[in-house]
């Protein structure tokens, strides 16, 4: 088990190195000059040259790459070209809203989607199944921001239950936090629920046809125990996998949702940085999100054996 975990951790190293090279080249080989952004429109060629020297942009590419990687490894994410502040600090200050919304989304999604998928599989080919599947196809087909605006229109403008936009930290007022975070979380959850419910249903359908389910029913085990203990546990591995791969979906959803609801999180930070060509922030954010994606999938891979004892490494 331990050697498997170690092997799995080591396997992430080349992936992260290639991501780093890719991000670095993406920003260096496309048109656009960070020095020009920093210097502004009125800069003379001599000033530009001095700034290039200071940023190390005149060094050969491989030197620039290694300088950057070593800085990152030391924990120095660089300085923003636009706000001239420390990138690490910027990210930390914007992390709170994103994490809170994402956690709320995952809780809502799993709480809704897993029972939906289980019931759809249990009542296979009935109107319940049809309704769940229709919802899940619909969830994939409407852009996240349109869902966001529909929610705003219904729940904030027509019914006035929640505020239209904005964000309050939980520490500044728990009630305000919930009333403002509920719409963005529901928006984000729509696509995630669609994804997880679909996978839960498919995975459960396969398991419900197994002999041990018939045996359990035959010996008089209560139906909800059959469903949630016998079947769901055995159907868990594909569901977990989809929660992991769907994590990338969550990240892109966060980016859009933060724009719709005007939430000062890292999604908005990244988009603003990309549009303003704030290179150090873009590099750090893409590496960070890729790192989180790899980490989440690593944890999920390792947790398989917990849910399915047949999997031993």
């Amino acid at each position: 088990m331990l050697s498997y975990i170690l092997k799995r951790v080591l396997a992430t190293v080349p992936v992260m190195i290639i991501v780093a090279v890719f991000v670095f080249l993406l920003l260096r080989l496309t048109p656009g000059d960070p020095a020009a952004i920093l210097a502004g429109d009125a800069a003379t060629p001599a000033q530009l040259e001095r700034i290039r020297d200071r940023l190390g942009l005149n060094d050969p590419l491989h030197i620039q790459f290694f300088t950057w990687v070593f800085q990152m490894l030391k924990g120095d994410l660089g300085t923003s070209l636009i706000s001239n502040t420390d990138v690490g600090g910027m990210i930390v200050s914007r992390l709170g809203p994103t994490i809170n919304i994402a956690l709320m989304t995952i809780v809502i999604s799993v709480a809704l989607a897993v029972p939906m998928g289980v019931i759809a599989a249990w009542r296979h080919r009935t109107w319940v199944d049809f309704a769940v599947m229709s919802f899940s196809v619909l969830g994939f087909s409407i852009p996240v921001f349109v869902i966001g605006y529909i929610f705003i229109q219904i729940f904030a403008i027509e019914l006035r239950w929640f505020p239209v936009q904005g964000y309050t930290a939980p520490s500044a007022g728990l009630w305000d936090f919930f009333s403002q975070a509920i719409l963005p979380s529901l928006t984000l959850a729509t696509i995630y629920v669609a994804l997880i419910a679909r996978m839960t249903r498919a995975s459960m359908l396969e398991v419900l046809g197994e002999d041990y389910i018939r045996t359990a029913r035959a010996k008089g085990v209560r139906e909800n125990v059959v469903l949630f203990r016998h079947a769901l546990r055995n159907a868990a591995v594909p569901i977990l996998t989809i929660i992991g791969t769907g994590f990338a979906l969550l990240i892109s959803g966060v980016v859009v949702t933060e724009s719709v609801f005007n939430i000062p999180g890292i999604g908005r930070l990244t988009v603003d940085a990309i549009l303003a060509r704030d290179y150090p922030v873009i590099q750090a954010m893409i590496l960070l999100t890729a790192g989180i994606y790899v980490l989440v999938n690593l944890i999920i891979d390792v947790s398989y054996s917990f849910f399915d004892p047949r999997i031993r490494y």
């Binding site: 992936v15 993406l26 873009i282 893409i286």
Partner: peptide, 20 residues
């Protein structure tokens, strides 16, 4: 390919459009 898949599609796409 694994590395490309680790970068969130939407971030990669915005970056590519912003730069090109």
């Amino acid at each position: 390919m694994d590395s490309l898949m680790a970068i969130p599609a939407i971030l990669l796409a915005i970056a590519l459009v912003a730069l090109n």
